[in-house]
Simulated scan of single mutants.
Amino acid sequence: MSRRPFAALALLSALAVGACSSAAGSAAGPTATPSASTGWSYTSGDGKTYTADEVPTRIIAHAYAAKALMSYGIRPIAVYADGPIDGDVGLQGVDFDGVEVLSEEWGHIDVEKAATLDPDLIVGDWWPAEKAYSGLEGGVEEASKKMATLATVVGPSQGDSIVELVEGYAELAESLGADASVVEEQRVAFDAAVSDLERATAAKPDLDVLAISPWEDTYAVAVPTYAPELLDLQRWGLRVIDPQKPDADFPYWESLSFENADTYQPDALLFDDRNYPGNRDTLARQPIASSIKAFAAGATTTWPAYWLHTYPDYTAQLQRLTEFVEQADETVGD
């Protein structure tokens, strides 16, 4: 199963390193050392340092990683995605024209085609809970995992903050030759958005929200510990509810039956935006929907679930959430 549960859970019903040398490194966050004269070095999210005699240029990347690299002018030769690119909220506005698409289905990558491209680097997020990079984790088909034999696989780690992930991709891009001076301008706008959200949440100290993704016969409640964007929101003052009983086998979520969907009564619901508005419609069809006070009151919005990789995207999402918080009623769930 994918660690991005709700491109993954929507698919459930249908459902190593390579060429360069490596040495153990610090597990503290990714660092990069660009140098045209001495080759290439990058300490990846798995804590290992990868090196090459030359800076990699033939890059295959997970689509979200590709979006991040492209924001700094690093264009991959191919991408693999977890679902149809045109319908992915996290890939809106990205121009993949001329870039080979190796997959638009989680768990399946056309490794034979990838091999013909002669890549010298593969890029994706490192997922500590599963000890694997994007597209190579448990549950994908074995043939797809062979992509890791084509080239070194690197990328910053998913951790307890999306900010660290964003910064990790900026560092990786710089190691690959990008001029990342634009990052400072992006960071200024982002910092301003964070400050605005903090002011809004400080003015609504009793506002409780619940991050959810209803699907099929399950009312799934997100566990912030495994959703760094939700941890960021908590850090900036938004009271995102921590569910009491995360699933033992996949603790990203607490899976409730719809009969128990009113277990939590927040002041607002945040729907996983990757399946929105379909997941909202799924909940609306359930008889219990009227017993969930926030849903009955129309106190709903979305949260950017597992796809944020750039400052501009994060800034836009924080600005939208700030407007929602400013208008929210802290008494809905009482």
Rank of each mutant, 00 (worst) to 15 (best):
F6I: 08
F6M: 10
F6E: 04
A8V: 10
L12C: 08
S13T: 10
A16Q: 14
A16V: 10
A19V: 12
C20W: 01
A28S: 13
G29N: 11
A32S: 15
P34I: 03
S37F: 11
W40R: 03
S44L: 08
G47Q: 07
K48T: 11
T49Q: 15
D53P: 08
D53H: 06
P56H: 03
I60V: 13
A63Y: 00
A63R: 00
Y64E: 00
A65R: 00
Y72I: 01
G73V: 10
P76C: 08
I77V: 15
V79Y: 01
D82W: 03
I85K: 02
D88M: 10
V89Q: 05
V89T: 12
L91D: 01
D95L: 04
D95V: 01
G98T: 06
G98H: 03
W106K: 05
I109F: 09
A115G: 08
D120L: 08
I122H: 00
D125G: 07
A129Q: 13
A132K: 00
S134K: 04
G138F: 08
E142C: 04
S144M: 03
M147Y: 03
A148H: 05
A148T: 11
A151C: 09
V153Y: 00
V153H: 01
S157G: 12
D160P: 05
E164W: 05
L165N: 00
V166F: 07
E167D: 15
A170S: 11
S175G: 15
S175R: 01
A178H: 04
S181H: 07
S181A: 13
V182Y: 02
Q186I: 00
F190P: 01
D191A: 14
A192E: 15
D196P: 09
D196M: 06
A200G: 11
T201S: 06
P205N: 10
S213D: 13
S213R: 04
D217E: 14
Y219M: 15
A220P: 04
A220W: 02
Y226K: 03
L230E: 03
R235A: 15
D242Y: 13
F250C: 05
S255A: 13
F258K: 14
A261G: 15
T263D: 13
T263N: 12
F271Y: 15
N279A: 11
R280H: 11
D281Q: 14
T282I: 13
R285M: 11
A289P: 09
I292S: 05
A297P: 08
A297C: 12
A299T: 09
T301K: 10
T301R: 12
T302W: 04
W303N: 00
Y306P: 00
L308A: 09
T310A: 02
Y311Q: 06
T315S: 09
F324S: 07
V325I: 12
V325D: 03
A328Y: 06
D329Q: 12
V332R: 02
